[in-house]
Design a protein around this nucleic acid. Sequence first.
DNA 1: CCCAAATCTAAACGATTGTTTAGATATTTA
DNA 2: TAAATATCTAAACAATCGTTTAGATTTGGG
Lengths: 187, 187
Amino acid sequence: MARKKEYKEEEVIENAMYLFWQNGYENTSMKMLEQEMGINKFSIYSSFGSKHGLFLESLKCYNSKIKKIFEKLKNASNGVEDIKEFFYDSVKIGSQLGNKKGCLLTNTYNEFSESEDFLIKNEMNVFMSNLKNIFIEKLNTDASKSEETVLKQANFLLLAKHGLAAASRVNTKKEIEDYIEMTFKNI
Amino acid sequence: MARKKEYKEEEVIENAMYLFWQNGYENTSMKMLEQEMGINKFSIYSSFGSKHGLFLESLKCYNSKIKKIFEKLKNASNGVEDIKEFFYDSVKIGSQLGNKKGCLLTNTYNEFSESEDFLIKNEMNVFMSNLKNIFIEKLNTDASKSEETVLKQANFLLLAKHGLAAASRVNTKKEIEDYIEMTFKNI
DNA sequence: CCCAAATCTAAACGATTGTTTAGATATTTA
DNA sequence: TAAATATCTAAACAATCGTTTAGATTTGGG
């Protein structure tokens, strides 16, 4: 054995995640990451392999952060009302975690939409289809809805969620609340 | 007098605009611009001053491209129905102009949301408030709506338009159509 | 026809990008 | 305590970024 590490991966990755969340992948440099993570390039590379590996790990970190509100949604039993609450939770979590805007996954989805990075695109698709399936499940608790209606509404909510994440980067809290309320008027 | 220029600014700027539209500002390099515009760096700099100047000019070029559907919206007289048509037109124009995704202005709005580039942010704010005012005007053609309702619905539509532009980069035509239809269900 | 000026090509600029390496420092174990 | 080794700092790496410059080429007017 030898010298001890002066940091914990699980701790420094959080700061990396916040930085990526705020600036996106390309606009976050190794220099900024050094500063924010509090360790230097050598340590980053020995722990995470590359900037790309660090980003993937940041996405996992983000996933674990939002796992709570996903579990809450899954375990709730008020159908559409739970989805609405999930929308509110999604916006709230950004201001709780250091006033970050939007959703890291949605930001990434947009930034990589023209990219050929299939590792990351796959991560995104898994997330989106999971979310869609949960929406479908919740919508199905209302037995009066036809399968077609459910699918259409699930698509609508998925885009609304995507749009909300994008818009929440530049709009006020009031505007966002109005948007969520109006969105669920249509369901 | 002396040698003649072998290109026209109005022509090459279009290709620059398409490239920015596709990749965003930061992810478009001068090298890519040289290739796509068909002129070299010297010419770009002598015509547009800098990458930043070129981008601003691209935004103006984009504005003139979408002017048509804005004028159409302004001059129409079917109230909300016209806004809906405007949503469809906004999506369509991307596929018409070389299968580009989303809206250059919205993409820019997102990319520069954390930036301190006030020249560009101002350009964005002017665009957004213009759009909002048009929405308000159209909504007001229905005299039964209270001022509060109109403002709330205008905010909703503005975010919906923003979200639509973001989502249209990654979603299918069918999903987008469903989204627009659902959006206007209760307006 | 030749000089002046504008536009071209292409190389070089310094700064920054992500990544690697050399060497000093600290810790564990035998 | 000494040898082994993991982790640190800090410099250097090649590649690319946006930008500038030097020099060749083309054009028009006197």
